[in-house]
Amino acid sequence: MKSPGFFLVVIALTAAGCSPLVLRPANFAWPIEDVLKSDLHGMVHEERYSLSFSIKPLMYAETKDSVHVSNRIIRLIRGEQGYYFITGPKFKNVYVFSQGNGGLVLVNRILVSKTGLSSPAFNQRAPYIELLNGGQKPVLLTRDGIVKEVKK
């Protein structure tokens, strides 16, 4: 009868052999946000990074309307860690997505304005994403939420 220690060593070695290959460090940050306008089918197309996706579910989540999805403006930026931050005019939230299997998967929804953003804009401020909204104080965001308001 082999000792439990032996089994633990075997399991540890097997687990190490099965762990995914990860290339680190990596930086996914876009230097500036992109302002995209949806087409008739609610698709947006980002040319520089060859990215396109449907904003129907996003619009439904934000406005409960998945019909009027054409000619809607969204602002998109990718953070250093690879999460996509999306918002738009009149949005109350900033949506944080990660790249999933054939789509963007919601990671977090950050409430940034109770009344809706008037003129939102993202800036890349690695490791944060800065959110501007007209004359209001900018806020710094991470995947998890607002870190803090930036002092003027």
Binding site: P31, E33, V35, R75, A121, F122, G135, P138, V150, K151
Partner: peptide
């Protein structure tokens, strides 16, 4: 970070 982003203008703009 605050020093670096003292400007409030959007980079995009």
């Amino acid at each position: 970070s605050g020093i670096g982003v003292a400007q409030e203008q959007s980079d995009y703009l």
